[in-house]
Design a protein around this nucleic acid. Structure first.
Lengths: 168, 168
DNA sequence: CCGTGTTTGGTATGGTGGATAACAATTATC
DNA sequence: GATAATTGTTATCCACCATACCAAACACGG
């Protein structure tokens, strides 16, 4: 239950206003269309949405796909290392891994060097799913972006976004 | 302590694994650094983070700021129109508006034309806060982005993101 | 008028991600 | 060997997002 209840009166007799607004006219974005953060988030949502569509046959979210990619490129790493790299907090990484492991896409193996940590490895099935996912991403998702922006545009965009992500 | 590099000719006993990994080496991003969606989200988080810092004195989130901007540019509109423009669902827009209204930054005024709808208006205080917020955003937030990307780079980035947001 | 259907704001609710505290097991350090 | 730090994990909390549903108010065809 909520501990703080706002005294929002619903029977508040407020003033009334009859403002003449052309309702057929679209709402003006105004300065919002120049706010980089706003457009950035809108674009990000669209891209994620398309990613989900393209890779839907494999039932992989962007986060899950990124984990599989990292495991493939970094065999022998443990949970904290992978989670930190992706900017995921360790507690939140547990359920993510649980879902992947329950689908037999990766496994946690107790390390012999440090028995606290779990070495993460892709399974055979995980490698197969990752390979198919990559194909879908390249042939459908990134291809569509390439078509929209052009190869040079895409590279320029990636470069600037990388710069923001790393140096901002 | 660094590992003394044991000869790792041991096989995994299905439960334990001693994989020789240079833990001093950073985890490799691999193909992730070429995945536009990943870098896009990372950049978006950084930008929002900086936005929050820059506008912290006024205690405004990006969403709240965008609402104030829209209200300023579109007087006489109702909740659904504003919410739809921002891609916010009407139920979720209620509490957002509640918080703004409780801070006396905007008001809901019952429309005389259609007594179901609430006309949204900035208060005097709301206009003041918005003006100060704009100054902070321009002088601190966007200025920092300009410094990083250059004016031309920023414009190119904005153009490509807009294209993605609108046409993707 | 009247009855039906739609729209608007709102509530309740569930799902998902992100963040912190705490804990057992294990390792590191002195 | 005592103490501190680390790893995976659980339990929460909070912010967002999405859906279903409701009362009040409108639209409209009879």
């Amino acid at each position: 239950m909520a501990d703080s209840a706002k005294p929002v009166s619903k029977r508040d007799s407020r003033k009334e206003a009859a403002v003449a607004v052309d309702e057929t006219q679209a709402v003006q974005l105004g300065e919002l269309s120049d706010l980089l953060g706003y457009v950035l988030k809108r674009a990000q949502l669209k891209v994620f949405e398309d990613f989900l569509r393209c890779v839907a046959p494999l039932q992989l979210t962007p986060a899950q796909f990124s984990v599989l990619l990292l495991l493939d490129a970094n065999p022998g790493r443990n949970q904290t290392e992978i989670a930190n790299t992706l900017g995921i907090l360790r507690p939140n990484f547990v359920s993510l891994l649980d879902s992947l492991e329950s689908r037999d896409l990766c496994t946690r193996v107790r390390s012999a060097n440090d028995r606290r940590s779990h070495i993460l490895m892709l399974t055979e099935k995980g490698r197969g799913v990752l390979a198919r996912a990559k194909k879908l991403v390249v042939s459908k998702h990134e291809a569509r972006l390439n078509e929209l922006l052009g190869p040079d545009g895409r590279d320029a965009l990636l470069a600037m976004l990388t710069k923001i992500a790393e140096e901002f």
